[in-house]
Design a binder for these strands. Structure first.
Lengths: 343, 343
DNA sequence: ATTTCATGATAAAGCGCTTCCTCAAACAGC
DNA sequence: GCTGTTTGAGGAAGCGCTTTATCATGAAAT
């Protein structure tokens, strides 16, 4: 394959032209043919390209980057790339970036603000052109400083208040309204929510959405939110669900995919049958939902749109550094399985 | 944050020393203190470091790369990062790389050899120091050429024959022996396998392993392998399982996580109860397995080891370009649920 | 015959960093 | 007082590329 790295110089020598000319031919190659400002003799150009191919020339990225101050690489910082939700988004971003000749570097924070900070620093040092970040609790100040540094930046999944930065988020209130409404339509009134105990916009909005929906539907008296520490999900979910069931709860709404899975497991262990004894609406997609003894009703997030919109928005910021920041809000959709239905 | 990019030169000016000295101080920083070959005055060194911090200096990666011909970046090419198995491995590699100050760029092939080739080319152009690849069918020749190019390379999950290249793979025969043995111990004799119709070492070895296990246990007459086209999994699995059930099959062994999920869904749709009517052993972990109406027995791959060993092996190749290639074979473990048991 | 001008090409600077080589000074041994 | 050695530091080349400013050349215009 690559024997001994051909450079622009080798081609220039071989063709008997200057390296400048080779450079022009090479970059005009990728450029829109219309806007070629610089005229190169057709035949010379062909000859250079031919030699480049014969010598298996590949431009040196580091040199180009050094010169242009652009890496054509973006960083994407997620909570955890092994979480299906983020993995799916990662995949969409990867595909989209590939089309635009961008390379993506992923990082996982595990909801740890220090790690997030560190990852950003590493990536910035690498010279990335822009960043997509899923912020975690405690990273607000740092992210504000990144935004101020004029590094093109898009937040995803979660927003942070008081900072002028673009973001792509879900309409979490609508999600919860759909979840609660569906359950109410199926005759539930004692609907409780299981969410995280985190100070994140999406978490708070889902909780808020649940409350609003309950009140809106005249069930304000039955509002009950259980906040789970994400470092100890399984056991907390089990105890919360246990006592709720004992109190005669009719339905649960879960705030994320992980919570849904844990909740279903807990219900299994407690030998509570779904939907006969307790009805359930989950969040996010999971291959487990279809396979569960009764298919799970869940709020489906538009994964592809998350990936696309985040990437596109970041591109806009990279191309126009003075662009106003904006927030894109995506609509969720409820997918009805049997876990929320009456019988 | 970064106001107007401090360079080594700014520091040199500020400190009244040469840029060379600054460079030394900076690189000695990261180096093992013992092997400092070059002596710098303690006080000067401290002063330079102080100024660097004050000016918020961050070395320019492109310049360093251009100079050293090293990017401290590796490429990892998987089938699909949104597949749980690969996402988990990706996560392990990410973590390990982070520790070693390496950055990882991921790519997904979707089992498409052209895409693999393209990804490799893009990454090589980026100047990566090494590659971990999950090869796909049809990419053998190309991968051989990559190996010949002396690019540090490790194959993962699957091997390719006749090429001198390092790899980290599963002991697939052992996996299948465990799967079949468990079922036999639970009284099954009509055990059929559902695998992919692909010319990949892991696929073939699992099939082979199944055959050997069956013969070894005196069930050679009952050997039946169903090969599924991965582009059309759901429908094929359903029809294969339907007819096998009609023929009175006692158990299925699946070759991958996706096949297992599809298989369980199909059994649900056919209203075949597991394990009462048909017993099942799956492959790979899935959050769905615990949640399934009867917990699923499955072959568990040592994900963390996959990540770690691949990365470590690649590091060795990067550090010692003349290292002999080697194959690391990891042991699977069967996790017994109820789907394979007698009652 | 002279000026103008489009065309095609080049020279050279320099992006920020590493590293080899040179060099000054101080101090040792003789 | 001379040579040799250690210690601390600087000079400068150059990695491969982009890009600006400049320059030949021949054809068209005057």
């Amino acid at each position: 394959m690559t024997a001994k790295k051909t450079t622009i110089k080798d081609i220039a020598n071989e063709a008997g032209v200057s390296i400048a000319l080779v450079s022009f031919v090479m970059s005009n190659q990728t450029r829109d043919p219309d806007e070629r400002i610089y005229k190169v003799n057709e035949e010379t150009s062909r000859r250079i390209l031919e030699i480049a191919r014969r010598l298996n020339y590949h431009p040196n990225n580091a040199a180009r980057t050094l010169r242009q101050g652009k890496t054509n690489t973006i960083g994407v910082i997620l909570s955890d790339i092994s979480n299906k939700f983020f993995a799916d988004i990662a995949r969409c971003i990867e595909d989209r970036a590939y089309k635009y000749d961008y390379t993506v570097i992923f990082g996982s924070t595990d909801e740890n603000a220090d790690k997030l900070e560190n990852l950003v620093k590493v990536l910035v040092d690498k010279g990335i052109d822009g960043l997509i970040i899923v912020p975690c609790a405690g990273s607000e100040r740092f992210i504000a400083s990144v935004a101020e540094s004029r590094m093109p930046l898009v937040l995803m999944d979660r927003n942070i208040g008081g900072v002028d930065v673009s973001s792509v988020v879900l309409d979490n209130r609508s999600a919860m309204l759909q979840a609660v409404s569906t359950l109410v339509e199926n005759g539930c009134t004692h609907i409780e929510m299981v969410g995280y105990d985190m100070c994140l916009s999406n978490v708070l909005e889902r909780e808020e959405g649940y409350r609003q929906a309950m009140e809106h539907l005249g069930l304000g008296d039955h509002v009950a939110v259980h906040r789970i520490d994400f470092r100890n999900i399984e056991s907390q979910v089990r105890s919360v669900i246990g006592s709720a069931v004992a109190r005669g709860v009719e339905a649960f709404v879960f705030g994320t995919n992980t919570l849904t899975i844990s909740g279903l497991k807990a219900l299994d262990e407690l030998e509570v049958s779904v939907p006969e004894q307790v009805r359930v609406v989950g969040f996010d997609d999971s291959e487990a939902f279809e396979l569960y003894r009764t298919s799970v009703t869940y709020i489906s997030q538009p994964i592809e749109q998350f990936g696309q919109e985040s990437f596109d928005l970041l591109m806009k910021h990279i191309r126009n550094r003075d662009m106003q920041s904006m927030t894109v809000t995506l609509k969720p959709q409820i997918v009805e399985g049997k876990s929320s239905s009456k019988i």
